[in-house]
Amino acid sequence: MLRLAITGAGGFLGWHVRTLLRALGRPEPIIVTRADLTDPDAVAAKIDGADRVLHLAGVNRGDPAQVAAGNVQLAAQLARGLRCCPTPPAAVVFANSVQAGNGTPYGDAKATAANLLAGTGVALDDLLLPNLYGEHGRPFYNSVVATFCRLLASGGAPEVQNDREMVLVHATDAAARLVGVPAGGSWDPAMPSLRTGVGELAQRLSGFADAYRRSEIPSLSDRHDVRLFNTYRSHVFPDHAPMPLPRRADARGELVETVRVHDGGGQTFCSGSHPGVTRGEHFHLAKIERFVVLRGSAEIALRRVGDADVVRFAVAGDEPVAVDMPTMWAHRITNTGPGELITLFWTNELFDPGRPDTYPEPVDLPALVPGVVMAG
């Protein structure tokens, strides 16, 4: 199994890399912190004998001169550590940018960083990445997708100032390419891209937000729609959960609309659970999953992969609500009542035993593993 080391582990792309490794059942990578990078001997000690070093640390936004200087400095620090390494890694994979060498301070700094790493004599995989998007990106920093999602989540509206064409790639696909794993599950190292205008992106995300405010699942025609919707959902959870469901009552009784899907299907199933029984303790990378308790009472608990804090919801069949599982969050449901718990589950895709997109992960952690960096 490959021994990986990584810089920038606490950033957006670094978190997606570590989450993918968790899904693959791989050990945590060796974390090279920014403090380590200031000491060549500390870097050398950490990456000595590694199969692959992923250089993800960088500076994306800020004063142009500082952004340029920061990207060159980080690469130079890693290069010094590589030269000090008794057993250099087999390869360095640099999360570079398609803007490298485009004449801007950022682009030229990225090109200089690649040259510095290439000059160490260690094999360099210079990966030119387009715009990345995905769950838990930082608004006004990582991507316009994160910015638009945060604005919509807070009740605002995206503003399109320059309606240019963009090429978007989901961060998990980029992570698969960086780690060097073949296509499988919900990732694709070929990094299938979405070409879209900024205005078109704003309209698409606004449509997702409009439907979701009504607890509805919007039309999701392809894998990028699913991933863009999951990205939006990462910005509304947990503040907008659980979601109320439309209820209708007449002389015959009550009707609750549990799932309304625009132009789609998926799979619905129900379970009965005895008192104290727990279901779940896993996470998904792309699958959308909804829980609705119809009878009894339960606790739904969730934890973002790589974090320690647990979010808990007490739910009951007397007042049915929907709780949608955000992607890349471990989750479970436990019967907390004295009788049988009846729960309705809905997913946006039919279950495929060969590609279940379900990865074991406990919600409660006894303690954080030493060396694990919390997601930024």
Rank of each mutant, 00 (worst) to 15 (best):
R312I: 03
T38L: 15
R164H: 09
T258M: 14
H235L: 03
L13P: 00
G253F: 04
V169E: 10
A114G: 12
G337Y: 09
A211H: 13
A65E: 13
A79K: 03
W329K: 06
S143C: 12
I47W: 00
C85N: 02
I288E: 14
G317M: 07
E281V: 07
Y133C: 10
S206I: 00
G137I: 01
L365Y: 10
V373S: 10
L2M: 15
L117S: 10
A176W: 06
V236E: 01
P158G: 14
H170K: 05
A375F: 00
L285K: 05
W187Y: 04
N115M: 13
Q77G: 06
A69I: 08
P158Q: 12
N71P: 08
L368M: 14
M191E: 14
G49E: 05
M243A: 14
A44H: 05
P182H: 11
P218L: 13
A57F: 01
R26K: 07
R138T: 15
V373E: 13
G280P: 00
I47P: 00
M191Q: 12
P326Y: 02
A174D: 00
D108F: 02
S219D: 08
L127T: 05
T33L: 09
M374V: 11
A157G: 02
M166W: 02
R312S: 14
A176R: 02
L128W: 08
I342D: 00
V93R: 04
K110S: 02
D163L: 04
L201E: 07
A241W: 13
V17T: 09
S154M: 06
T258R: 03
V160K: 04
T104K: 03
A113D: 00
A308T: 13
G306Q: 02
G339H: 10
V277F: 05
L201I: 07
A65K: 08
L178A: 10
V72A: 11
P360D: 09
R260F: 10
A174Y: 01
L194H: 07
S154G: 13
W346K: 04
F94W: 06
L56N: 05
P238R: 01
G25H: 07
G70T: 05
R34Y: 08
G265M: 11
L341H: 11
H136K: 12
S273I: 00
F148W: 03
G156S: 05
R52N: 02
G276D: 08
F345G: 04
L255K: 07
S154V: 01
R204P: 03
Q203A: 14
R303F: 06
I342Q: 13
P360S: 08
H262G: 07
Y232N: 00
Q99H: 11
L24C: 05
L37H: 09
D51R: 06
H284I: 12
D108Q: 06
F237C: 02
P370R: 10
P105W: 03
P242A: 09
G81W: 05
